[in-house]
Amino acid sequence: MNPTRDLKRYPGFGGITWACLVFLYGPLIVIALYSFNEIRSITVWGGFSFSWYVKAFNNDLIQRATYNSLIIAVSAATASTICATAAALAILRNRAFRGREASIGIISLPLMVPEIVTAIASLVFFVLVGIPLGIGSILLAHTVFCIPFAYLPITARLEGIEGHYEEAARDLYADSWQTFRYVMLPMMFPGIVAGFMLAFIISLDDFIITNFVAGPGATTLPLAIYGLVRTGLTPEINAVSTLLLLVSIFFVTLSYLLGKKPGPGR
């Protein structure tokens, strides 16, 4: 690349960059900062302390919500990753089957549908079919809307794997299951892990759909935080949010690193 055409030389580049950084990350930093506040304020600094973290850990509601969220996120991510893997293999690897194009559309459509619409539709569906609202319905809804997110990194990975590997495995006496188990699965693995983690994060922080299909008893972490906010902002919420942020950053980074791994290989 020609260094004189560097992006930095365009007028306004520095200003826009700073504006983006401040607006995107400023609030996050403030939230994280005030989670260590000594006093019960989220705008006035009163000294450093871990007390709000201790309080959050001892909060019964937060404990229960965290537990629910983790159970739901792990289960939904697992189920949606399995579906997405199967879909990716069917769509990319099988010779043309009827409805192949349609399948691709159907899988990625949920990314485009406004979430509030999905939320209402899910609620109506559950009520119509008679599925009781609670952890079960949340799990079901999360599994469904996580599939397209899990699908993306998995297909990206699979697209990079040449068809010759499968043929080589078949040629060397592997049946379809062995071909999948010993050749395709290990080669797709980084994509599958990335898909799982993306689905996990998406499920963990979903609010709108969860809020609609949760029913009265069940609560997840985002719902719990929302509930707390309505009764007044305290640094306890900052503490919980900061922890949630850290979990997200951890998973997104891991997923990014795995997705970036060069070619098929270790």
């Binding site: 040449e162 590997y165 043929e167 080589a168 495995a169 040629d171 050749v183 290990p186 070619g263 290989g265």
Partner: peptide, 13 residues
């Protein structure tokens, strides 16, 4: 019958 593929198709993992 076994095949030696043009680009070998050795399993990278």
């Amino acid at each position: 019958v076994n095949t030696v593929f043009q680009h070998y198709a050795l399993f990278p993992h």
